[in-house]
Write a protein that binds this DNA or RNA. Structure first.
Lengths: 233, 233
DNA sequence: ACCATTATTATGTATATACATATTATGTCA
DNA sequence: TGACATAATATGTATATACATAATAATGGT
């Protein structure tokens, strides 16, 4: 086959990815400049540029202005996980989504929460706990603290038909977020809620969200140990 | 300040992100077409296009050809985790990296491994186990199976100075991969190796890699329960 | 009404050109 | 030699233009 392939930055990107994967361009090596590649692929420099930029975003290339482009030495490839709404996640897996509200009160937030959100201690926040089920099986236990200053309107919501997650998604988008994954053990209450044994492993996702530096919510989402997060790249 | 900001697709992207975050453009709403925005920001359509495309890649916008661009209703925002080489991960956290080879043998791989790699059962594979430490603290236990057909050269490697991970990174890049995160409990041997108690929680990352459909390696990377994977978005 | 064909439209991509910017290499003067 | 200004260079971005493509809307014939 001809090396030129045809054109379209997709094809060019794929060809360059192949060269990297097959070590035609070895790790650490300087690859030809955009102009040269443009001639080789017989396309415009802008087209090569787009392909190169996307590969650089993916972490397989490293670019520096005058220095040129080289193959990443330590391909710190990024894994992308889409974090969908639980309901969608369950429905995509073919389950029937249900959720159960466990509690919904205004309380003083514990310091573990206020500290991470950058709020003063003894802050009154809305504390909502609920359980998401796939059919009759507990799927995720959601333990959420909401900054009422940021979304005062949520105070009047009963969460009888909509989960706090979805309420927030449709009423208060966020601009920044921090997500943490870790493994833990089910505590007494968590075990009971998730219908697993105490001291069973649980998969915990914590998420902090902000709009323009302003803290919105802190949520711990706890899955039974059987839960798996999968991604392809 | 003027709504036009200046130009540069970065500024335009930021301004559009602000409008989405502040609900000037509500979820589900159709936003103006590229031409209109180009006039508004007094720039070329291509510039608006780039900003819009990046926002769409980030999941906050949904674009469809003739239908136009609308704010994502369910912002299935993607979390990006960079999966660095363990050594870098430890050194970035200020630790001193060490690794210890635990075993290195050619064995029949268990079906759990061969099945996931799409190999026939009773396949002889290279089985390497090692421990990565931060200072004196066990950080990650790596249990790896390698397809000798794909990388025969690895048979002669002793892994005395280089870990199998780094060997593979520098000698055999991959084109596809599947990554799984989940929570588990430490088994007897894992507990001993990681210096945690049996039945303590562990954070498990499994990775399967392929080059052009050809299976390369299956690896289980097991961290003590205290491990946290963090990302910002 | 119904279906197939055609026009319309918004986004997607390619191109040539121009200038901006970061970084390295070079040259000059003290 | 060393500090500093200057040139050279590869990537970064903006622009106008053109055409491609997908999806919808409009059209027309049976």
């Amino acid at each position: 086959m001809t090396a030129t392939a045809r054109k379209s930055f997709h094809a060019i990107k794929a060809e360059m990815a192949r060269r990297i994967a097959e070590r035609v361009w070895a790790p650490g090596a300087l690859i030809p400049g955009e102009e040269v590649l443009a001639v080789e692929f017989s396309c415009a420099r802008a087209t090569v540029n787009r392909a190169l930029q996307e590969l650089a975003r993916g972490g397989v290339l490293v670019r520096k202005r005058k220095a040129g482009t080289r193959v990443a030495l330590h391909p710190m490839r990024e894994a992308r996980f889409v974090i969908p709404i639980v309901r969608q996640e369950i429905e995509n897996k073919g389950g029937i989504y249900q959720f159960r509200l466990l509690s919904n009160d205004v309380e003083k937030a514990p310091q573990t929460v206020t500290k991470r959100l950058g709020l003063g201690r003894n802050k009154e926040m809305l504390h909502v706990r609920c359980l998401h089920l796939s059919g009759a099986e507990p799927y995720q236990y959601e333990d959420r603290w909401i900054n009422l200053d940021a979304v005062p309107a949520i105070r009047n919501e009963t969460f009888e038909t909509i989960s706090p997650n979805e309420w927030l998604v449709t009423h208060s988008p966020f601009s920044q977020a921090e997500i943490v994954f870790h493994a833990g053990l089910a505590g007494t209450d968590e075990a009971e809620i998730l219908k697993v044994d105490e001291k069973d492993p649980v998969f915990v996702i914590e998420r902090l969200t902000f709009v323009l530096q302003k803290p919105i919510t802190f949520v711990r989402m706890i899955h039974p140990g059987s839960h798996r997060m999968v991604t392809q790249l």
